[in-house]
Design a protein around this nucleic acid. Structure first.
Lengths: 197, 197
DNA sequence: GTCTATAGAGGGATAGAC
DNA sequence: GTCTATCCCTCTATAGAC
């Protein structure tokens, strides 16, 4: 409620987001978060009741970031199928550039605790039942549109989830990796178009 | 060295594989492994020196399972590009059916500790420098073949990594999910062929 | 080889001074 | 609001009986 408190609370939340998202719930120590935030451990429990409470806030934010981008575009009836695909490919890769740890974090933690999905946002309505999925179904009547959604997201997300492996084994510099991801903004829509012919 | 010991040792290793692969290193308690193995906690440390030692064995096995399938086929010079793709799609999906937690486990743990890759198997030589990659390069001279590898693996792996989300949001029964994965054995090669035209 | 009991460290949470 | 000191539980690892 005080002036200072807002800044401190935000600092803790930012630190928690960083550490939790990078290491996951179990591997994260509250002491690490405090250190990252540049302050004492006791403040975590002063502002947020517990490690778990802090985590749930971070998780909700991350889920929103990961699905929030998707839902509005998927249901934008003014956009054609191709336009949706091109727009999502670009904006999703841009978002993943800024939040590279997000996909693996969400996939891992959600596997342990699938409850989150229902509680925070109802993805089923806005993703599975979206205008985008209807357009896919129309275009390819004999194939379940979920197939295309899985492939689309897989092509977008996998290179970020597997970045350490890719860079390690293919000996890619950061510049080379970044350039590849830039190229994918154009390539993935081309590929999807071809898959839908 | 005794007769009984082999069985017990294997039981522990199997339990460790299950729990570690499902929950990751940090979230796994040695007590859980002991319970899963149906025996006492002290036996873990009798057969394997520590939690970490046991983990490294499981990790090595999992890495081998995940990449071991790939390497021989990727370098089989008697197989055409299309044959390689078709064979890998089928065998990889079959393997993932049996080990659904494998990809997320390896991706997550490797992110924390990229050392593993170099130590256990040199993926760079057998995957990045494979005959498969050469074939891709020849077929599409103006596109980095890593793009196709990323998309191929993404399309194969993502549906398994995201299974809880998919099943939860799309309200898929296990049968429906399994059928989708079966369909992908044929669809993914068709899609890749089209991407390579 | 297998068990029970316990040592010892680490980490989440709180008390209480300022 | 912020800090130090500390409680207390959980978890890994080991000692020692059988």
């Amino acid at each position: 409620m005080e002036e200072k408190s807002i800044s401190t609370e935000e600092k803790i939340k930012a630190a928690a987001r960083t550490i939790f998202t990078r290491k996951g719930y179990a591997a994260t120590k509250t002491r690490d978060i405090a250190e990252e935030a540049g302050m004492n451990l006791a403040l975590l429990n002063y502002y947020f009741r517990s490690k778990e409470k802090l985590f749930s806030i971070v998780m909700a934010e991350n889920l929103k970031k990961l699905f929030g981008i998707l839902a509005p575009t998927l249901n934008d009836k003014s956009k054609s199928l191709d336009e949706k695909i091109a727009y999502i490919a670009t904006s999703y890769i841009d978002m993943l550039f800024l939040n590279p740890d997000l996909p693996l974090f969400v996939l891992s933690e959600l596997r342990q605790n699938p409850v989150w999905l229902r509680e925070t946002l109802n993805v089923d309505a806005y993703v599975i039942g979206s205008h985008f999925m209807q357009q896919l179904q129309e275009k390819k009547k004999d194939i379940n549109p979920i197939h295309f959604l899985m492939s689309f997201l897989g092509m977008l997300i996998f290179p970020f989830a597997a970045r350490p492996i890719l860079q390690g084994t293919a000996a890619l510099t950061d510049e080379q990796y970044n350039q590849l991801m830039e190229e994918r903004k154009k390539l993935i829509p081309i590929w999807l178009k071809c898959m839908l012919e």
